[in-house]
C-alpha cells in the first residue's frame, strides 16, 4: 500500500509551481504590490491627478491631531460595546433553543439566516424606514401604545446604538449557526458526568457549556470586531456619518478622505492605522476572553 516511497520522482516538482502560478501572479500584482505601495503612499500627499509629493511623516502627525480620526475610533467603540454582547446573548439564546431534536428546526434556521445573505443595502433601506422619526414603523408602534417617539437616527446619542441594533439583527443568524456548531461539538458525556455529580441545569451551563464554547466565543468576538471596523454601507446609506459625526465609521472616514477630498496619502495612512488598531484589539480580546474563562 505504501506508494509514498515513489519519491524518486515526486509528483509535481514542476507542475506544482505551474498550477499555483496564476495564484502567485495574481497575489503579487493585487496583494503584494498594493501592500508595498501602501507604505509609500502614507509618506506622500497625492490627489491622484498631479504628481505625488513627499511629505515625510506629516500624514501621521496630522492623524494624531485629527478629531475625526479619534471620533471614528470612538464611534466604532460605541458600536462594538453594544453589538458584541447583544449579539452573543441573542445568538447563544437561539442556538441553545435550536440545539435539540425539534420539528421545524431547519425552518427556523433558514429564517434566522435570511438577513445574513441579503445585501447590507437592502437592510439599510429597510431600517431607514423602520427607524424614521415621524413616519417610521418603530415609532408608529411606540406611539400607538402611548409612548413617546425615540429619535433613533436623528439624535447623536441614539444613532450609533440604532445602527448597532440593526447590524445585530442582520448578523446574528450567522452567529446562531456558529454557536450551534460549537454546542454540537460538546460531547454528551460531559453533561452526563456533570449530572451524575448533581449539577443543576444552570450549573451545567456555566461550568460545562460556556467553558467548552470558549473557542467559538473567541471566534465570534473577533469576527464581530472585524465586522465593526468594516462598517460602511449602513452609515453611508442611512446617516452619511451624521448626526454630528456620531456614526462616522472607520471605513466611511477613509472613503470620505479619499473621494470627497482626494487625500489618497492621508486615506492610506488612516487605513494603516485602523488596521493596526484592529490587530491590537483582536489580540487583546483573545487574551482577555481566554483568561476570563479558565
Amino acid at each position: 500500500m505504501h506508494k509514498t516511497k515513489h519519491s524518486t520522482r515526486l509528483p509535481g516538482e514542476r507542475s506544482g509551481l505551474l498550477m499555483a502560478a496564476p495564484y502567485l501572479i495574481h497575489l503579487s500584482i493585487f496583494f503584494g504590490y498594493p501592500l508595498l505601495f501602501a507604505f509609500v503612499l502614507v509618506f506622500h500627499r497625492w490627489d491622484i491627478v498631479t504628481p505625488m509629493e513627499f511629505i515625510g511623516l506629516r500624514n501621521f502627525a496630522r492623524l494624531f491631531q485629527d478629531d475625526l480620526f479619534f471620533r471614528a475610533l470612538a464611534n466604532t467603540g460605541v458600536f462594538l460595546v453594544i453589538h458584541i454582547p447583544l449579539q452573543i446573548i441573542v445568538a447563544l439564546f437561539f442556538a441553545e433553543l435550536l440545539n435539540r431534536k425539534l420539528r421545524g428546526r431547519s425552518f427556523f434556521r433558514t429564517v434566522y439566516f435570511l438577513p445574513v445573505v441579503v445585501s447590507g443595502v437592502v437592510v439599510a433601506i429597510l431600517f431607514q424606514r423602520l427607524f424614521a422619526f415621524d413616519t417610521g414603523y418603530f415609532n408608529g408602534l411606540i406611539t400607538s401604545m402611548g409612548g413617546t417617539r425615540v429619535p433613533w437616527l436623528v439624535s447623536p446619542k441614539w444613532a450609533m446604538p440604532s445602527i448597532a441594533l440593526m447590524a445585530t439583527w442582520k448578523n446574528v443568524g450567522f452567529y446562531v449557526i456558529l454557536f450551534l456548531v460549537g454546542l454540537q461539538n460538546i460531547p454528551a458525556s460531559m453533561y452526563e458526568v456533570a449530572t451524575i455529580e448533581g449539577a443543576s441545569t444552570w450549573q451545567r451551563w456555566w461550568r460545562v457549556t460556556l467553558p467548552l464554547l470558549n473557542p467559538m466565543l473567541v471566534t465570534v468576538v473577533v469576527l464581530s470586531t472585524i465586522g465593526g471596523f468594516s462598517l460602511f454601507v449602513e452609515p453611508y446609506l442611512i446617516t452619511g456619518g451624521g448626526p454630528m459625526n456620531s456614526t462616522l465609521s472607520s471605513v466611511l472616514y477613509i472613503y470620505n478622505q479619499a473621494f470627497s477630498f482626494n487625500h489618497m496619502g492621508y486615506a492610506a495612512a488612516l487605513g494603516l492605522f485602523f488596521a493596526l488598531v484592529i490587530l491590537m484589539v483582536v489580540l487583546l480580546q483573545r487574551r482577555l476572553v481566554e483568561e476570563d474563562i479558565y
Binding site: F31, Y33, L35, A38, F229, V251, A267, A275
Partner: peptide
C-alpha cells in the same frame, strides 16, 4: 491583513 490597508493603494493602481 485587514482590507482597509489595501483599499486605497489598490484603488490608485
Amino acid at each position: 491583513v485587514p482590507f482597509m490597508v489595501m483599499l486605497i493603494p489598490l484603488y490608485t493602481m
